[in-house]
């Protein structure tokens, strides 16, 4: 009797190609990404059509709560009201895309149950470093372009890295270091999301292996934890990218609008955090 005894839990950290389309290998994560993209679009378009002043309950109300939550947060983090209105659609989209991808990745059909070509047929889209890196890269490109645009020119934007005047050698070195640490944001954003989702998959696999025939019971608490972590990571990705944009934009507009006042007052340096 070796039915329940494998050599160990089957773990895949990287996605694998499950089929080829016109000679191009299709990985399992991008396949599930397309499926969940269609599902997310249908759900969100349905919710936006059905949205009324009187709440009707169900998934529409859940999505309304999420939208208003993120919009309130984005509005409160920008000093200017119009800027919040301008940028909140992107962050709401980001939040729901990550949230639904995380939650759709916990369905039983996703993972080692259905195998094709030696790899699981479906894999959560956010459990792939390429996907999260792409999301983080696009987010940071949006952040850089908008903060350059809002601060009025690339020179004004670069000035916000320096505490005082860049002619002082100490401030110059600190400012250059700040610029370099800015690029680590892409890596930290993408690695955080990818590792949380991928390690969640691994933990569920390990505990369903340890549970033998009681696998549904032993893996249940970790699946519930993953539900919470999926929502938390979507929130954190959105909040951190909002913060990156808001800090750069607020600080830059602060420079432009209040520069003349502060020089009149005679304050030496425009101190700002990162």
């Amino acid at each position: 009797m070796k039915i329940y005894f494998g050599s160990g839990p089957i773990i895949h950290v990287a996605p694998g190609s499950v089929m080829t389309l016109f000679g191009i290998p299709i990985t399992n994560s991008i396949l599930y990404g397309w499926i969940s993209l269609v599902l997310i679009s249908i759900v969100l378009i349905y919710a936006s059509r059905k949205s009324k002043i009187k709440p009707i309950g169900g998934i529409v109300q859940f999505i309304e709560i999420g939208v208003s939550f993120i919009i309130d947060f984005v509005h409160s983090s920008f000093e200017d009201e119009n800027l919040g209105k301008k940028y909140s659609p992107y962050f709401v989209t980001l939040f729901f895309f990550i949230l639904f991808n995380n939650w759709l990745g916990l369905l039983p059909i996703v993972g080692e149950g259905v195998v094709s070509n030696g790899y699981p047929l479906l894999r959560p889209f956010t459990g792939d470093l390429n996907a999260t890196f792409g999301m983080a890269l696009i987010t940071m490109i949006v952040v850089y372009f908008s903060s350059i645009k809002e601060s009025g020119g690339i020179k004004n934007y670069l000035m916000h890295f320096f505490v005082g005047t860049p002619k002082n050698p100490l401030y110059l070195i600190i400012g250059i270091l700040e610029m370099i640490t800015d690029f680590t944001r892409v890596i930290s954003l993408s690695l955080r999301l990818f590792l949380n989702v991928a390690i969640g998959e691994i933990v569920i696999a390990v505990f369903s292996y340890l549970g033998h025939f009681l696998a549904p019971i032993s893996a249940l608490p970790f699946t519930l934890i993953e539900l919470f972590i999926g929502a938390l990571q979507a929130y954190i990705f959105t909040v951190l990218s909002t913060m990156y944009l808001a800090i750069a934009v607020n600080h830059a507009t602060d420079h432009v609008s209040k520069k003349s006042k502060r020089i009149k007052k005679g304050s030496k340096s425009l101190v700002g955090g990162n």
């Binding site: 930290s188 690695l191 955080r192 590792l195 390690i199 938390l232 954190i236 951190l240």
Partner: peptide, 17 residues
């Protein structure tokens, strides 16, 4: 507070990975 928890947690996850 949860945001800072996530920031700190990244380093543990890096060790796990």
């Amino acid at each position: 507070a949860l945001i800072f928890v996530a920031i700190v947690e990244l380093f543990g996850l890096l060790a796990f990975a």
